[in-house]
Design a protein around this nucleic acid. Structure first.
Length: 257
DNA sequence: ATGGCGCCACATTGGCGA
């Protein structure tokens, strides 16, 4: 089973690239972030024509998440239960016996922004919820844009970014608490090339100079981590015309049966 | 030097992303 996560930065604009990704990579499920579409505008017919189902939760202009899958998703859940949030950042569903939790974690903007404490509180709510989800769903994957670079090796210039949003110690502590639940960062299960990132600024030739961050992650429960045979960043999708500023991240699972 | 690029909408400029 091949699963992926991709912040598309507007599905309206990026639909051709998504269809290219589906056709060439043949994933079983893709978790999308920043669709920026209301549900009535979601491209259901186009994805169906490509052989994919979709479950989605969107809003105008900002945020928006979706799970696109070959097999129809079941037990779809929108948002974090008990955590009231106008921002559409979470959708979970079961595909082929794997519980997929698609997350668009808050950016935080800056350490002195109101969005920063919201980010930290949001992660606390996510972690509390996932604690129970892991017991309910042994085969659990949490995929998406975490807006946290977990370690300095996930940052092109750690000195320039030191203590900035996306790398600050409180944020990295929140990421570590997710790992403390027993989740594994699938990317780090394998030897990886140095300076592998998943996001590059559109400005200043960020991608061409590989001035990026690794902020998109696929976290796996222990049974899924044991079944994981590969985890990569699909840089080629960042080279397309009119790309998202994020590249897809992919994990392959060798599941029995 | 807080710029740079891309996307969105109460659009022809400002908010936001990261």
């Amino acid at each position: 089973m091949k699963i992926a996560a991709w912040n598309v930065n507007s599905l309206k604009v990026r639909l051709p690239q998504l269809l290219d990704f589906l056709a060439t990579r043949q994933p079983d499920a893709v978790c999308l972030q920043e669709t920026k579409l209301t549900d009535d505008a979601f491209p259901v017919a186009e994805l169906e024509a490509a052989g994919y189902h979709a479950a989605f939760s969107g809003q105008k202009t900002y945020n928006g998440v979706a799970i696109v899958s070959r097999s129809a998703a079941t037990d779809v859940q929108i948002g974090i239960p008990g955590y009231a949030d106008e921002q559409k950042r979470v959708i979970a569903a079961t595909v082929d016996g794997v519980r997929l939790v698609c997350v668009y974690c808050p950016n935080g903007q800056s350490l002195d922004s109101d969005k920063y404490p919201y980010k930290l509180a949001w992660f606390d709510a996510l972690t509390a919820w996932l604690t129970g989800e892991l017991t309910r769903h042994p085969n659990l994957a949490v995929l998406g844009d975490y807006n946290i670079a977990p370690e300095d090796r996930d940052v092109h210039d750690p000195e320039a970014w030191k203590d900035d949003v996306l790398v600050s110690p409180p944020e990295r502590e929140r990421f570590r608490k997710l790992l403390d639940l027993g989740l594994k960062d699938s990317f780090r299960l394998f030897e990886q090339p140095d300076k592998t990132f998943s996001w590059w600024d559109y400005r200043m030739l960020g991608f061409q100079k590989n001035r990026g961050l690794r902020i998109d992650h696929i976290l796996l429960s222990a049974p899924l981590a044991a079944a994981c045979t590969a985890s990569t960043v699909d840089r080629a999708m960042r080279k397309l015309k009119q790309p998202s500023d994020h590249a897809p991240v992919i994990a392959e699972l060798n599941l029995a049966g």
